[in-house]
Every structure is written in C-alpha cells, then in structure tokens.
Nucleic acid binder design. Structure first.
Length: 255
DNA sequence: GGCCAGGAGGCCT
DNA sequence: AGGCCTCATGGC
C-alpha cells in the first residue's frame, strides 16, 4: 500500500501546532519528550519505523478517502483541498494543546509560537540544542502569575495557572462524548467553546468537531450561507482545516 | 445580552 | 519607523 503524501508545510504551520521550527529543509520539534527532526523527503522512512511519529501524523486514518468525499461536496472546498492536499489533523498531546489554545486567544500564530517557545525554554526540559519539551503540568506547579506575565502571556496568565490546577480534567475527557467533553474542558478558565473545540479536534481526534473562529465564520457567511457544518459530515473537522487554511492563504495572512 | 479590556510583538504601510 | 492588527474569553 502506498503512503499518501503528507503536506508538512500546511500541516505543521496552519495553526494547529505551535511546536515546530523549520531550519532550511529540516522540520524539528520535541515530540513525546524527545527531539524529532525530518525533511519532507525523509519523513516516509521515519514513519515506517517510528510508531509514535506515525500516530502523531494520524496515519491510521483514511485521508485520501476523506479528501475525495469532501471534494465531491462542492467546488469551493474542492479547490481548497486541491491546493493543500495532504493536510492532516495531528494527534497532539492534550495538555500542550490546551495551553497552546489558551495562548491563542486574541493572538496571531507567530506570537503564539513565540509564547509557546518561551514557556518551553523557561520550564520545559532540553532535548537538543535550543529545543525544549513543552512543560508538563508538574513542571508548572507553583509558577506564579507574575512569572508567566514576565514571559509576555499577559491576561492569559491566570488561565494557565487554572489549567495546571485542573489538568486532571484532560484525562477524564477521553471517556466522554463530544458534548460532555466540551463541557468538561470549559471548566478550565480561559477555555470557551472555540478553544475547547480546538482541543477536541487537535488532541482527541474528535473529527466531527468544527471549531468556529472569526475566519471560519466569515467563510460560512460568504460561501455556505445555506448550510450548517453538518454539510461536511462526517469530516467536519478536516473540512474546517482546509477552509481555514485556504482562506487565510488566499487573503495573505501569515500570522 | 452587549460591550469592552487586556497585551505586546509581528505585520503592513 | 510607527501605527495597527490580533479576535476568544470573562467580567461588568
């Protein structure tokens, strides 16, 4: 069986993960506590021998089938998929994803990335030159609001502290249905419907979840006025990623 | 229910 | 070089 090509550029920099850097042709991040690096060309051989990386890139899901189905629904989505084919929904760590999307509110991607990096450098564990793991809740235990504000997270500092305290919720989410899971996540300060939806889609493989940020609301208003997100069923989450990424690329947004 | 603060770095002109 | 944008959440 041939392995479908993963579009790394779109997948790693579309705003679902803030962990990755690209130096030359090399993509690099701390993944599950260790340094992982590859190029577009070397990724297939890494996937073949590293189950962890394979799982991270959601390799057991039939993306070709999902893309075909979505592309058959309407020409606008078909064009987005044609432009960025191989965009995947990553299987990310719930804790990292929760803090990342708390940081994301009222913020642009470039700045989220720098805050993510600063938190990692300040409280994470080094795994390679200049690369650190994202700090676990235990590593952030006892951190103060002032310390976090010192890193530039601003009004999000108390949210992060609350997330540390309530991090056990993240284990319970695995056993809840989508609705119950969203309610549970929203018990964390700074987690509302949008942030909670992103956590469910990017860390818990809830493929039916359709996060609505301002961009997606614009897209739905401009192109899907007579539809709800159920139009994209059962691949709402993947459709959202293609629409979001294509629309923003088209409108020249980088951050 | 609606409006506005909060925060600072990257983006655009 | 400097002003503007970000755009979810919580609190009033």
């Amino acid at each position: 069986m041939s392995r479908p090509r993963i579009n790394l550029e779109a997948t790693l920099f579309c705003g679902q993960s803030f962990a990755w850097t690209k130096i030359g042709a090399v993509y690099q991040a701390a993944l599950r506590g260790r340094l992982v690096s590859f190029t577009q060309e070397s990724l297939p051989s890494l996937l073949a021998k590293d189950g962890g990386v394979c799982e991270y890139f959601d390799c057991s899901f039939d993306y070709e089938g999902a893309e075909q189905h979505l592309a058959s629904l309407d020409p606008y989505l078909a064009r987005a998929i044609a432009s960025f084919s191989g965009l995947r929904i990553l299987c990310q760590d719930p804790w990292e994803t929760t803090v990342s999307f708390i940081l994301s509110q009222n913020n642009h991607i470039t700045r989220i990335r720098s805050l993510y990096r600063r938190l990692s450098e300040a409280y994470g564990t080094p795994v390679g030159e200049g690369v650190y793991t994202f700090p676990r809740p235990e590593e952030l235990d006892g951190v103060t609001e002032d310390q976090l504000r010192g890193l530039g997270v601003g009004f999000r500092a108390p949210y992060i502290i609350d997330a540390v305290a309530k991090s056990p919720i993240l284990d319970a989410v695995h056993d809840l249905d989508d609705e119950g899971a969203l309610s549970a996540l929203m018990q964390i300060a700074g987690v509302g419907p949008k942030v909670g939806s992103c956590i469910l889609l990017f860390a818990y493989q809830r493929r039916r979840i359709f996060p609505r940020d301002v961009w997606v609301k614009r897209i739905m208003g401009e192109h899907y006025r007579h539809h709800t997100c159920a139009f994209f069923a059962p691949h709402e989450g993947l459709a959202q990623q293609y629409l979001f990424h294509a629309y923003r690329s088209e409108h020249g947004r980088k951050g």
